[in-house]
Design a protein around this nucleic acid. Structure first.
Lengths: 345, 345
DNA sequence: CCGCCTGAGGAAACCGGTTGACTGAAACTT
DNA sequence: AAGTTTCAGTCAACCGGTTTCCTCAGGCGG
């Protein structure tokens, strides 16, 4: 029977192709330091294909050739934003001959464990880090045991290995949209302090609000969750200090926050978009299934994943790293949660 | 300086503890076939701790001791159901000394690739498969290259390695709730054919509807997505065949379907829960942030993950496998999307 | 006093690849 | 014709663990 009941090894391929292990290895890895007759090369490749040969990653790693695997560390997997990034990373890695693993690093809680399991135990050749923040334990671990890595989405100032999107642009896009509809008092829900994309979004929001001469542009902070959105929205719509800040629109830093904000608006007996317009960041399928469907700024999340992989692999191959900004521009996705103040179209 | 700039190896520990590699290996792996003085044992353990020693997974795997890693294959990561399962699996695996990796198998598309990357390249010792379905390529691969595995959530009939939840019970719980509110015509949105949990839920729904003597209990199928929920709900509320099936409540197989159903209900100009009550499966944070908040049946997803890991590790250690049902019962989580027909409390 | 057993630990082969040094034959120089 | 290249590939060490089989020393029984 033509079955191979057990993994084929390099020697099996060598035997079948009637050459030595060394030759097989060099042929399959496409090394130039070896000259082979095209005929031999083909025999090797056919044998490998016939046996369904796959090199044992452990053996390969041991021999100093790396594991051909990466790991992406994300702060939360129930945030679909990171799932999209992960998909981009996975696909691009695969195209480049690598495997991208996914690990959840609950805001630093699991960082050391992941680092040990993945890097110290030699399972990966490098890290894509999307969970960075100031004082994150990973930064320590990286300085003690250096390993190729890049930071994505959340950058680390001065690291020179940040892969980010143009989040400032997303604030401008959202604000221009609301301004165009006639809004002059727009509130912003930012993320927790210290998280760079959120900080940048907030700065750009305030700067552009100034440029447009908005009458009010209050900012409230909250976690990137529904609950964070609820409480921040309440601050904007019903400030604790009693000041009257009658925002007619809210622009949030994440999709979940936007969902929370919508809940809060309704809980106050207000309507969307008639009384308050809402714009979220990150266009994910669920946005279209809210009521009303949510207007969002679509960020190039998938591309962020692919770009981060490219940067990391370049670094692994010894190229100098450097900050990268994904060129794709944020794009407004118009849905039913925005209208002119008072509900005008 | 007390730094160890590079990974500590077994020999480093051996040297520091003034024993041989063999002794260190045996001590750290807690093998009984070696007798050591408590004093020596302690020296070894202290040395390992001092150096932050971690065995190289590749070396260990090569030497025949396995990789101490598992992989969980899920059909879709943007379905938070699987994220919860994955968290349970990860934690339990960690407690038992294993690393659980996560791979997305877009309904069979990536199955062979994942299998090659993870199993054939020797990165994992076993598979947790949540993406099974009839004719799935993985089933083939598994028969060609056997590797320890269990199926979770989606079972494979006759495999004798299914880890599942009591989904029949969830239908009964949901139906009893709606019946208690006074509903006599309840529709069900099932998943695509061939997916076992959905089939079982559907069977239990029909059986229990019969037991309760419901006047109507139509079933429509759709993907486990928002869109699937939309079209299935439309079939229930406005059947193409012109028959009048005035369901006053809908029970769905997934959370996303419930969200889609809610959209569909509203698009028809109906109100929730006054005109139509909706109950979803799987209680996830987003359910509380819909409008109205969604009543759900909470399934023991986290426990499903932990139970699957326990079953797989037992199998890896050579224990006979067998089907397992997670003992935790589904639990109704009451929110605003259900009320008596006509909107009575 | 000698042989044997037991407790404590060591030596070395092996897992499956990679890699740099090396070799034998053919082709080319001079 | 002899020496030198080049071609085409081979040899064997090595990576970092695990495991099986040994060894050595001391204690014990006879």
């Amino acid at each position: 029977m033509p079955e191979q009941p057990v993994r084929a090894r390099l020697v099996d391929v060598a035997e079948m192709a009637k050459v030595s292990k060394a030759t097989v290895s060099k042929v399959l890895n496409g090394r130039q330091d070896l000259s082979v007759r095209p005929e031999t090369r083909q025999r090797v490749q056919e044998a490998a294909a016939a046996l369904g040969y796959r090199p044992h990653s452990g053996a390969r790693a041991l021999a100093g050739a790396g594991t051909h695997a990466l790991a992406l560390l994300v702060p939360a997997l129930d945030n679909p934003t990171y799932v999209t990034i992960a998909r981009g990373a996975y696909q691009r890695a695969r195209e480049l001959g690598y495997l991208s693993l996914l690990a959840e690093d609950f805001d630093g809680q699991e960082a050391d464990e992941s680092f040990n399991d993945l890097v110290q135990e030699g399972r990966v050749d490098g890290l894509l880090i999307a969970s960075a923040r100031p004082g994150h334990p990973l930064l320590d671990a990286l300085s003690r045991t250096p390993v190729p890595h890049v930071f994505l989405n959340r950058s680390v100032e001065g690291s020179g290995r940040n892969v980010t999107m143009d989040v400032a642009r997303s604030s401008i896009t959202a604000l221009d949209h609301l301004y165009g509809l006639g809004h002059r008092a727009v509130g912003h829900i930012a993320g927790p302090p210290g998280i760079t994309p959120s900080e940048h979004r907030k700065k750009a929001f305030l700067r552009h609000a100034g440029e447009l001469g908005l009458s009010a542009s209050p900012v409230a902070s909250g976690d990137f969750t529904e609950d964070g959105g609820v409480s921040a929205a309440l601050q904007l719509l019903r400030p604790a200090d009693g000041t009257r800040r009658p925002v007619t629109a809210i622009y949030t830093s994440s999709l979940a926050q936007a969902m929370g904000a919508m809940t809060a608006v309704r809980d106050l007996g207000l309507r969307i978009p008639e009384d308050v317009s809402v714009v979220g960041n990150d266009d994910l399928p669920v946005a279209g299934h809210l009521s009303p469907p949510l207007t969002t700024v679509a960020m190039p999340l998938y591309e962020l994943g692919t770009a981060a992989v490219e940067a990391l692999l370049a670094a692994i191959q010894g190229a100098p790293v450097g900050d990268v900004v994904v060129p794709t521009e944020p794009r407004l996705v118009l849905r039913g949660s925005t209208a002119g103040p008072g509900g005008t179209a």
